[in-house]
Design a protein around this nucleic acid. Sequence first.
DNA 1: TACACGTGGGT
DNA 2: TACCCAAGTGT
Length: 410
Amino acid sequence: MVTPAASHSRQDREPDPTPDAADLLVWYDRHRRVLPWRALPGAVPDPYRVWLSEIMLQQTTVAAVKPYFARFLERFPDIATLAAAPEEAVMSAWAGLGYYSRARNLHACAKAVVAAGGFPETVEGLRKLPGIGAYTAGAVAAIAFDRPAAAVDGNVERVVSRLFAVEEPLPGARPVLRRFAETLVPQERPGDFAQAVMDLGATLCTPKRPACALCPWMRPCRARREGTQDTFPRKLKKVAGALRRGAAFVVQRAGDGAILLRTRPASGLLGAMAEPPTSEWRTDYEPAHALLDAPLDARWKRLGTVRHVFTHFPLELTVFTAKVAADTAAPDGMRFTLPAAMGDEPLPGAMKKALALALETKLALPAPPPPPAPEPDLATPPPPEPPPRRAPVPKVLSRRPASAAPIRKK
DNA sequence: TACACGTGGGT
DNA sequence: TACCCAAGTGT
């Protein structure tokens, strides 16, 4: 350290008080957000709801979680119901929310908790459960069991980095930020405190243009005092992944209009989710040779491409479609799913885009995206239109199916 | 420690 | 359009 304490020998006009949890709690009592998973003031929280919401909220916005949370509770009202449910039902209810390992771990965790007769109430006990890391263990211990634990998420890291003007960039600064955060946790109302810091980060101490004037911790905030609040937390810039390409094959059976699907491997990207058969996705994929990867012989029609951006790489799928005879057997490891059952298939967003392009109809795909469907979503079995005599020129969709991005190449 | 791992919304 | 961001975890 370059600066000895002596450098502050001159009298500071503002002494730099330590952030006081009580000040934040006063603010919280007046400005707390009303959220579906939050117990009313004075009420005892339900650990199942607290846990479920925390898992859903990992790297996911409140707005995105709300409808899923409501739906999940309807379908799995308590942890015993969840534990007893088939894996596919859980994946299906999660489809569209992303980070699907969360759903797999959620299910495994439910089983473990039921087997143990209930949730552990300590950070150490919670930390051992699948899908529960340092943050979630602290959050559940604090919120559900009112233990004095720190719940350090992105909000808290931002708040603390500003409070103490931490120069070290993320993610390296995480241990330091956690230590600072732990010093702030009060013995009184630790559960409310945990939620209060997150509310502060979500509503006032925002990534951009924080509303410092309204902040209960404006006084003790070092970044604010120095006018540098916008620059925290410091971060290392990230590199973008290379574009990967592949082909998706949408096969529709004559007669009943069933679609050929398969289930992806249980772990890894989109693990245990459903998809129409696709080729491998590679940075050097050559769409011109895509038919070599087709799942079966048919009159393939090239429709166009769909794009999707994952956290670490962008994907471009060339979509092919074909209609096959009603008596066609599904290749090994694949299945035909009837239009009416498509809603039960755990289809991730990328695959919904490919299917939407191929079917041109917003057939009520995975009912999951329950939120963004305000209007009645008719399950229209794709009308067996007359067989295309010649492959039409791949056209650009004029109207876009709800979940499908406009497909166009520059 | 550094990556892998989704998705939708905001600027 | 291109990033950035959101109540992180597992390997």
